[in-house]
Each structure stands twice: as C-alpha cells, then as structure tokens.
C-alpha cells in the first residue's frame, strides 16, 4: 500500500495548537517564578481562555477534521483502538484517532477549569484574578486550591499527550508532530481516498470566531468586576 500525502489539519487548528502549547509552557513557567511576571501570567490565562472558547466553536462550525462529531468515538471504539495501538500493526487515522479525540476534550476541559478558576484565584501575596473580588475570600481560596490541584492534572495530561505522540512516532512510525506543522499526513491509499471528502472551512471564519471569543473574555475580565 503506497502512502499518499493528504491535507488533514487546517491552518486555524495548527495555529491554535502551537500557540496553546507555547502559552501553556509560559503559564507553567511564570506561575513557578511569580513576582511581577504574574501580570503576564494573567494575560496568558485570558488568552488561553479565548483559545479554548475558539476551539470549542471550531469543533462545531469548523473544518471536518476539527469537528467533535468527526473524532468523538464511543468507549467501545476507543478501547478497540487502544488495543490495536498496543498491538504490532500500524493504526493510521486521518484526523484525531478515537483516543486522541478524547485527549482533545480532556485537555480543553482541564484548560477551561484552569483558566476559569484562575479568574477567581488569589496568591495571598499581591496577585488576584480579575473576578476574585466578586466572591468571598473563602470561595476564592477554594477556587485557588482547585487551580493548584488542576495544575497537576494538566501536567499529567500534557505528559500523557507528549508520550502518546512520541509512541506514534518511534513505535508506530507515524510523525504526528510534522503533520501538526504542515497540516499534511502520509496515509495509506484507501484512507487517503476516504479523507478526500474532508471539507475545510474558511480561515476567515476562524478569525471571526477567535475575535468573538476574545471579546467574550474581555467582557468577562474587564467589565464584570467593575
């Protein structure tokens, strides 16, 4: 079976992925360092919130491979895929595979919780989220505790995500990383034919959705607590 290059990821998905990855690294780093950089930690959090909102809307209105309906599989399908993944043979997928699809949802959910609790968090030193004044100190403390526990959960998910991608690369000989840069995967001919029907939504629509998400976050962080 001859592998053929097929376009699977649109530009908005790729830009979303890598800007999110960079921002998450920045958030971990700035959170550990503290001090004046906390100002940018907060801006990073707002941006991540906007990116997550955008990705959810793109999962409904975006390109075929970006849609939740395209990659959300039931538990039985996901388990069967997991077994195939661990057995010897190749397990190529045009878009997200059934397990990867659940990782997308898990990461988005955990990031939403992280950014959401951050809005209400305080560090007992000199930094607090823009909405911390809307709730009691005790509530802010509880949400800060969630921010800390969820941080560990996020770290675990990120590690699992990277480990899975490395497994695909080294063991299954599938380079998902370069595909996330170029948007192109090399797929077996039959799968490539099936993928040819994928529809790609306009990147301008993506830009519009991202701007709308940014506007929502802006209202949330600067207008709500006045």
């Amino acid at each position: 079976m001859l592998d053929q290059p097929v376009r699977v990821w649109d530009l908005p998905v790729r830009l979303f992925h890598w800007s999110l990855a960079l921002l998450v690294v920045f958030q971990f780093t700035s959170g550990y360092i503290g001090g004046n950089v906390m100002r940018w930690h907060m801006v990073g959090g707002y941006t991540i919130l906007a990116l997550v909102l955008f990705r959810v809307s793109w999962g409904v209105a975006g390109s075929t491979t970006a849609r939740f309906s395209n990659f959300l599989a039931g538990p039985r399908v996901a388990l069967a895929f997991g077994r195939r993944l661990l057995s010897g043979g190749p397990a190529p997928h045009a878009g997200h595979n059934p397990l990867g699809g659940w990782m997308v949802v898990a990461l988005l959910a955990v990031l939403a919780v992280q950014a959401g609790t951050g809005l209400f968090a305080n560090d007992d030193i000199a930094t607090e989220g823009p909405l911390a004044t809307l709730v009691s100190k005790a509530a802010s403390d509880r949400l800060t505790a969630i921010h800390h526990v969820n941080h560990d959960l996020l770290l675990a998910l990120v590690a699992l995500h990277i480990a899975a991608v490395l497994y695909h690369w080294r063991v299954k000989k599938e380079n998902l990383i370069s595909a996330m840069f170029t948007g192109v995967k090399r797929l077996p001919a039959d799968l490539a034919r099936k993928t040819a029907g994928a529809r790609f939504a306009s990147p301008w629509l993506a830009l519009g959705l991202f701007l709308a998400a940014t506007f929502v976050v802006w209202i949330l962080v600067s207008q709500l607590a006045v």
């Binding site: 503290g34 001090g35 004046n36």
Partner: peptide, 14 residues
Amino acid sequence: AAAGGVGKACKGCH
C-alpha cells in the same frame, strides 16, 4: 524590579 523580587521571595517561602 525590586518589588518583583520581594514577590518572588514571598512565594519562594510559601
């Protein structure tokens, strides 16, 4: 800049 250093020192001990 010095204020940032104080914030970091607070956090480091906490």
